[in-house]
Design a protein around this nucleic acid. Structure first.
Ligand SMILES: [Mn+2]
Ligand SMILES: [Mn+2]
Ligand SMILES: [Mn+2]
Ligand SMILES: [Mn+2]
Lengths: 220, 220
DNA sequence: AAATATTTTTAGTTTTGTCTAAAAATAAAA
DNA sequence: TTTTATTTTTAGACAAAACTAAAAATATTT
């Protein structure tokens, strides 16, 4: 079965949102992620339910079927492999690749993506630390964790931010925190959950607001 | 100005067809190349004329404006660079890449294509011997010529076929003519325009039907 | 529980790109 | 130069994917 660019974007979005919804994914949540109107989402989910890639119950939200899950994972695999290509081979920065990968993920060719995978040396994670699904559709649990979730003594490298607001990124620049920075948790303050960390050999204090927005990929 | 996937395919097709039309490109010719109906072509060329990328005179055919030519050349540049990538980096065969490049040519990012160009070592021709337009939009004259147009004594390597019908390709296999074969014209028969050639060191006779369908890239 | 607010769906349009059928223009043949 | 054939355009329809406005269902307050 074939899917349009639009259908693929819906399936991928529903897959991502399912991780944050206990029951079905809400119509409004999909609309917001795709920057479209809820009424458009209703139309589309009805069509996708017809195609049996999602289960849709009026007013109750949607969930992917096994078939839909497989389609979504294939798109995510393509997205992340292309991101690796852009960063590793074409020297793009981690924050420049998303928009382009958003287009490349829709190129249809099994052969292409498997050869790309091989060309890249079968990478297991993308430039943001997210796991790359295998050809068979298996996804390893993400290696990256929020800095705020690390225990004292754990260390790793900074691989991304949760919400990449411009203000926040400027703050990171000022503090010399960048993608690739080595970070070790030295101690935690119980009262306000602030952290004392070792950043590339230098001592630094970090508030909870910050540690809640920084992703760390653990060493090893 | 932005162009849809469909508009881009029309512009590229008109560019290619202009090389074979003295006046404007006919509606039917476009329809045949794009495997669509003439009425659909009329609709589209009227829209493209509005956008001032083509000149269109009712019943007289269409020609690209300078603006349209630039857009077409950019798409062709992308198409051919991606073909080089597929063959040189991902080890595809020359005859397997067209369909995939047909999709990749529509990925929108100047930065991407210029970095890809650099990554590939600024190639000047694609796997079929066709010239790759520069970033500035310049196209070198194609190095490849039909075998039938070569003079006695000229030599080069086989880089492609004009019409890749399965029957013809099978014939080439039987005669050991392949992409990469070294070919030298030894003599021409005036009567039926058949050729005596040196194919990778072996003597071979070739009819006009064959020499009219084989592209040779001259040495040097 | 009733009133109010929010979410979701329906109904009716719009745009893009395609199609079929029929009419009009142009080209070729008689 | 008529007649016939071919090419091209118009008119009207359709499917995909979006939208607005309004109705219906669900959730939250009072
Ligand atoms: Mn996308
Ligand atoms: Mn990513
Ligand atoms: Mn194309
Ligand atoms: Mn080519």
């Amino acid at each position: 079965m074939n899917f349009s660019l639009s259908e693929e974007n819906y399936l991928k979005t529903i897959f991502h949102l399912e991780q944050h919804f206990k029951e079905g994914v809400s119509t409004n949540a999909i609309a917001e992620k795709l920057e479209t109107k809820p009424s458009s989402v209703t139309d589309m989910v009805q069509k996708l339910a017809e195609k049996e890639v999602i289960r849709y119950v009026k007013y109750k939200g949607t969930t992917l079927t096994e078939k839909g899950r497989k389609v979504a994972i294939k798109i995510i695999r393509k997205h992340r492999l292309w991101e690796v290509f852009l960063v590793d081979k074409l020297d793009f920065q981690w924050d420049e690749v998303h928009e382009i990968a958003e287009q490349l993920e829709h190129i249809a060719s099994e052969e292409l993506i498997n050869r790309l995978d091989e060309f890249l040396g079968f990478p297991t994670v993308d430039p943001h630390g997210d796991p790359i699904p295998t050809k068979e559709g298996l996804i390893k649990n993400s290696q990256k964790r929020l800095l705020s979730k690390l225990s004292v003594g754990e260390q790793g490298i900074c691989v991304g931010v949760k919400d990449s607001e411009s203000e926040f990124l400027k703050f990171l620049d000022k503090k010399n925190i960048a993608i690739g920075s080595q970070i070790e948790v030295l101690s935690k303050e119980e009262f306000d959950h602030s952290l004392q960390i070792n950043l590339d050999g230098k001592l630094l204090y970090i508030s909870k607001l910050i540690s809640d927005n920084l992703y760390i990929k653990l060493d090893g």
